[in-house]
Structures are given as structure tokens and as C-alpha cells.
Amino acid sequence: MPEILAAEGLSKHFGGLIAVNKVNLSIKKGEVAGIIGPNGSGKTTFFNLLSGFFPPTEGRMFLFGEEITHMPPYQRVMKGMVRTFQLVSVFNSMSVWENLVLSGIRFKERYTSARKFFFLSTKDDEIQENCLKALRLVGLESHASTLTSELSYGSKRLLEIGIALSLNPKLLLLDEPLSGLSDVEISEVLNLLHRIKSDLTLVIIEHKLSKIVNLVDRLCVMNEGHIICEGNPNHVLCDPSVRECYWGKEEIDQGLLQEKASA
């Protein structure tokens, strides 16, 4: 399988703190990769580097074989790499469908015309249908006209994923898509992820290991800025160094661990 994303010796220093330390990682087309690790191990910082939020202290990145180390974030998005944020980031002052206008029109050929961008009303059928399509995908179509700030946290998360999906990504980076959600909301998001995973490449940061173990093809464990272990989920969970770094952490499901170990 061809490589979509590659990081080579990627590091990020914050003053004396080394948040990401010489990480090498490659993501293959069509796979679902999970990144786990204790709090403060540098997972979000790693995503920030990949998406261009800030430049790396050292190292290089490649997207579809092209170097993107110094590419501004918006160009990376246009190349097909889209991310979500650990703290849900949607536009609270607008209604739900308005949140989807910018993402929905950007990647449809017929909207590249400047005339439409500047003068076509957003109440136009073409735009509305695009928004609704994305809303349907994440199951929020009944909330189309709701003010986004009135949505529950789980719905906002779904909306954020909907925005990301309407950008037509080839590679989607999800930063803790399940954090802060109730069990019902978690299963909604998981359902969505299972539905879309065949169409794109996914990289998911997550604490709730037991929830994503069935979703991911490959698991990478980060600790103190390093990737300490990567590979098949079952194999990774049995790795002694992973168990050591996670030992006693409530995030990991003990029962699951034992089950995998005995298997």
C-alpha cells in the first residue's frame, strides 16, 4: 500500500520541554491508525506539527510523497489532510448549517467561481443541499437551523466531524473524538467512524482504548514524546513497555487487556 503521510525525525521543543522527540511515523493509504499515550505525552503536539499549526523544531514531513514541512495549514487542507481539535472547535455564533457552508463549497468544483462565492446567497438551494448532505451523514439534519451554541457537546463533536468530512479529506486526523462524551454519544461517533473508514485514511488519538480497539488496524503508543511501540493492536497491548506506562491508568480496560493476553 502506498504511503500517504510520513514524518521523519519530527521534534518540537517548548523552551526546555521536548514535547515531541524525533518521531518517525508513516501512514499507509486506507488504514486506520490509532495513537494512544498518557496525558502530556505529545500526541496533540504531534498533530499540530502535521497540520501546520506551528513549525517543527527539526525533522520533515511528507504528504503523498511531497514535502510539506513548511507548507501553510490551508494548503495542507487543500491537499486532502484535514484535522479536528481536541476541544471541539465549531462556530458557535452561527447556525448549524452555516457552519458547513465554507467547508461544503470549497471542494466542489462548481463553486470555484468568484461570482458565486461573493454574490450567491447562502440560502440558495445548491449551497443548502450541500450542507444538508453533510448534516445527514452525521445525523444532525433535524438541527440544521439550531444555533450551534445550543447543541450538546456530542452533537458539536458530530458537527465538527461533519465539517471535516465535507472538506472531502483523503486523510483525516481526529484528536480525541470520544473525549467528554456520554456513552450514547460515543456509540454515535463510533458508528459514524465505522461507516466512513472504508473511504479514507484515518488517524485517531484516543484515551478510551477499549472503544477503538476494534476500529484501528494499527496502534502507536506515545510516551514522553517518543513512539515507544507500534503495530497490531493486540500485539501492542501485550507489550511490556506499554503495560508499564499504562499500568494503573483507568483509561485502559483491565479486562480487555487480560482477554487479549490470554488469546
Binding site: M78, V82, S93, M94
Partner: peptide, 24 residues
């Protein structure tokens, strides 16, 4: 009231987020 209007209102609320929607 066009997408451009949503663009500038989005910039008002969170410019960084708009960059991550693929806009300069």
C-alpha cells in the same frame, strides 16, 4: 449574505479555525 459573509463572520469568531478549513 453570501459565503463570503460567512467567511468574514467566521474570521471574527475564530480565524485559526478558518485556516484549517483550507482558506488563506
Amino acid at each position: 449574505s453570501s459565503p463570503f459573509g460567512i467567511m468574514i463572520r467566521s474570521i471574527k469568531e475564530d480565524e485559526t479555525r478558518v485556516r484549517f478549513l483550507g482558506y488563506n
